[in-house]
Design a protein around this nucleic acid. Sequence first.
DNA 1: AGCACGCCGACT
DNA 2: GTCGGCGTGCTC
Length: 805
Amino acid sequence: MPQIAKVIVDVPTMQTNRPYDYQVPVTLVDVIQPGMRVIIPFGNGDRKIQGFVLQVLDQLSFTGQLKAIEAVVDLTPAVNPELLSLSDWLAQQTYAFQITCLQTMLPSVMRAKYTKTATLTDEIPTDLQASLFNGNDELTFDQNLAPDKLKQLMQLQRQGKISVTYHVDNRAQVKQLTAIEPALSFEQLEEARMGLRKSAQKQSQLISYLQTLIDQEAPTLLKTILEKTTFTRENIRIGAEKGWLRQVKVEAYRNPYANAVQPTHKMTLTSEQETAVDAVVQSASTDASEVFLIEGVTGSGKTEVYLQTIDAVLQQGKTALMLVPEIALTPQMVQRVKGRFGDLVAVLHSGLSEGEKYDEWRRIERKEARVVVGARSAVFAPLEDIGVIIMDEEHEASYKQDESPRYHARDVAIWRSQYHNCPVILGSATPSLESRARAQKDVYHLIRLTQRVNQQALPAVELVDMREAMRVQKASNFSPALLAGIKERMQKGEQSVLLLNRRGFSSFIMCRDCGFVLQCPNCDISLTLHMDTHSMKCHYCGHEEAIPKICPSCQSRQIRYFGTGTQKVEAELQELIPEARILRMDVDTTRKKGAHAKLLKKFGDHEADILLGTQMIAKGLDFPDVTLVGVINADTALGLPDFRASERTFQLLTQVSGRAGRADKVGQVIVQSYNSENYAIQFAKQHDYEGFYQYEMAVRHRGGYPPYYFTVKVTVSHPEEALAAKKSFQIAKQMRPILSDQALILGPTPKSIARINNRYFYQIVIKYKQEPQLQAKLAEILETTQIDTRHGFKIGLDNEPLQFT
DNA sequence: AGCACGCCGACT
DNA sequence: GTCGGCGTGCTC
């Protein structure tokens, strides 16, 4: 009976965002399964593209001429049934194309690359063949093909002198290594030895060696033999030639953590920790999908709770998924988990090469790894039979992807937990207001860890009012109190960590005579100074140019740096304390792979007194000799027009405060600010999350913000500002009639950076409580504005956006 | 996305 | 007359 496959094709547009029917060729009838990738002809020219099989049916719903599947890419489905249905839900939830969702769930190497080649089928003038085809009869189309050559090719195509073929390249390469195994039995080898000449010492040795390998299950890697024995490549080759041994290819995993990991052991739990573990494990064994919110002060041992929960779940024969913000996925963290569960752990994060990520993914897929630790996209790890999903630092904004599909890993985690009937742990010292409010309403189960494991008091936080400090001294980033603190630690041989809250701050260049600021030609934003590359860069579009020596506007030479970059602060501190050994950690010094870990190791080895950095130093670092944490500018985020500014400031301050004085030494925190009376700073000083939560909830209630309201953001962009504005007003007007009186439309307003990459952005934010028609209307708007994309419009939807600026 | 088709202005 | 510009529709 004829088989039909429903296929999602790799053409990310609104119109092709639906399954297409394909004939399954007889040869593939028993091969093709849902979730496999296939290569299919698509469109008029039958160009070859990749697609995902959704279902295989024996009935067809399509009445036209079917095309047949060309080939299968996978031997086993790349996407299992769970993830297939997750992709469907995700597409609905985030208004993204299903193909984009499917590709997001897989390692990037599994995304197809397409090439197009022209082959000569007829005689053409030799000079043309020489210039166009380089004398060959085949040519690959690519972007840098000169326009005139492209014209010539099109002409040839019209004359029917070339044929165009499409290729789908699969970049996912399995790394293979050569290994050997004995090809004969012990006795046969002995016989072979008899046939040798007396002088063939090495060959005899090889036979003996092979005999020792006979009982081994797996083939031995050639690499290992060459390293550990005296046999050479040539010896092995002769062995193979004489039929004593077989050379086989084995799949190798690129193991990014090949170096031995220190095993770590279970720690004794405090009674609070134990209660937490028990509650979750209890839930795991009842097949319920509860969400636990663990609100635990810094140092309360949340990680140990996670690890012991994972341990219990593994013992139930299930698997575990642990999500960590990218920035917290430090070598320290990985070591800790690997140390506990060894080779059962797969790690997924952006520091791995594409190939390494693919290998880790395959280890999970083949059930060799049963614990996955990773950043946001690890939430799609193909684990089966999940027993618990953990999300550490659940308040972190990096769990939300800021490109399509704009999903929040927390939502995906909860979806998967319902599929697997397993608990979710959301852990944080400073939970997001959304999660904490859900716990209040008993949607989540709240567990509070109030005791620190070492029973030590939280460090004292001292606020320094910079307005005051600046009155008595000249402008500086360092108050006398902070400087004194740093010097004191240096004398005691202890260390300091300094945080530069960089949000909304960076160094730019301004002319002191005319006030000219160097701007990006494509975006409405000033260029940022980068000392390491000696250039000015745009952080939005990547535009780069030389640092001007004279002002382009008034030709003055008085063009100077402004703002507070880490480099500038480092220079100032060095000047103030010449003998200080300072390590700077920011985007520039950690760009290279492994640089982050190297810097941290240096600091851990006491090669520096001071670690100076941006947000990235706030998370997860654990150095016993750090007894002072200084926050250079606590309140830059507070000035931003974002209702989450206070929450972010509170979270950041609490986070860094926890970095001071672990182990046996007392810690101190010095926070410099221009707004020390601000409630976020005050509650952070008191280490009072619950107080902050109550206060902030009241603020959100008054302003009508989440978690009291749901939000959705519509962004419209166009190269012409007036058109972008007009379209956004049109959309707002369409929305109004279907919304109830409870819903509010904010805007349209231009984005705070109105122009990015030569496009103007306008946005609308809809705040609502319950709008049954909203989702359908938004989907409809995406559908109807489809035509406008032809005229340069881009319309994007962001469900529950984290960025409002 | 990328291709064909079809309608208009500028050319051999 | 036709070549080739782009606007429009469609892809199982």
